[in-house]
Design a binder for these strands. Structure first.
Lengths: 149, 149
DNA sequence: AATCGAGTGGGCAAAGGTGGGGAGTAATGG
DNA sequence: CCATTACTCCCCACCTTTGCCCACTCGATT
């Protein structure tokens, strides 16, 4: 099972092109895929899926979508799927980020591409550091006491 | 099951390369693995996993990290996966430490690599001696009455 | 004494990240 | 229906960084 990990600092160029880490492209090639799937994600980031993981989503195998409130689930899925695009890296390994996704994630110049297990995520650098201070550090401390790791 | 033990003093060179103890590399070879997995650890160190242990951690979709609060769980998993890297020792047995992990662990020049059972840990020398004074000794006293060893 | 393994440093070629030109295509408006 | 504009894709080019390789030192062992 392909796992996406690691953190990479890139920049979004004036043409809204964004580099994809070579490792991820390797994984893509291993799956014999040509394109990733990019869409809006939670907490103001973008999700980048490998074809295999994307298929799983469509098949309903990933439980990330199952909500008790089915109406909310539908609303969420509408945004999620309507904003999704198939993105194929160019010869330099860059993908094109649509304007509306750029806005969703508040992307400026400095951008982070990082693994999140079954997907990768794209973050505006500033937004990530804010999120990390506010959310990640507390969650980490909370888990530290209870997890034997 | 392979255990990692022992303590080794190394230095982080200007190119952020760090030696891995030959014993650990032997163990890696025994597992027919080529790479370790390096990620951020608790109390400001780095964790170095053998492939087998890494797999074990992932098995079951990281159930040990599942929290009732999915927002917090996402936050934790984001840190965990995004800061993890696959590191392959070069011909001299050194691995490359990414900048963000170097910062997480506050690594300067003098670095400690030490076994911790199912993983190894990487510490900044100064940080370790502080931690030892502050935490290890008191923890020893705390458990002395209940540990039969 | 010589050899071997280990830790460290540095040179250099290759790869990776970034920028921009220009042709082709689609969307917009007169 | 045509003209203009915006956007996308495909090149090519530069430069920094990375990773690979060789080399030196030191201590231990034979």
């Amino acid at each position: 099972m392909a796992l996406l990990i690691g953190r990479y600092d890139y920049s979004l160029d004036p043409k809204n092109r964004l580099a994809v880490p070579p490792k991820y492209r390797e994984t893509l090639a291993l799956e014999k895929g040509r394109s990733f799937y990019l869409t809006s994600g939670m907490e103001g980031c973008l999700y980048l899926f490998l074809p295999s993981q994307w298929e799983k989503l469509l098949a309903g195998d990933l439980k990330m979508f199952s909500l008790p409130d089915k109406e909310a689930e539908r609303a969420f899925k509408r945004k999620f799927f309507s904003e999704a695009v198939e993105v194929e890296p160019d010869a330099q390994g860059r993908i094109l980020v649509p304007q509306y996704l750029k806005e969703h994630a508040g992307l400026r110049f400095d951008v982070l591409v990082q693994g999140a297990g079954n997907r990768a995520e794209v973050w505006d650098a500033k937004r990530w550091s804010d999120y990390e201070k506010k959310m990640v550090a507390p969650a980490y401390k909370k888990i530290a006491k209870s997890v034997e790791l």
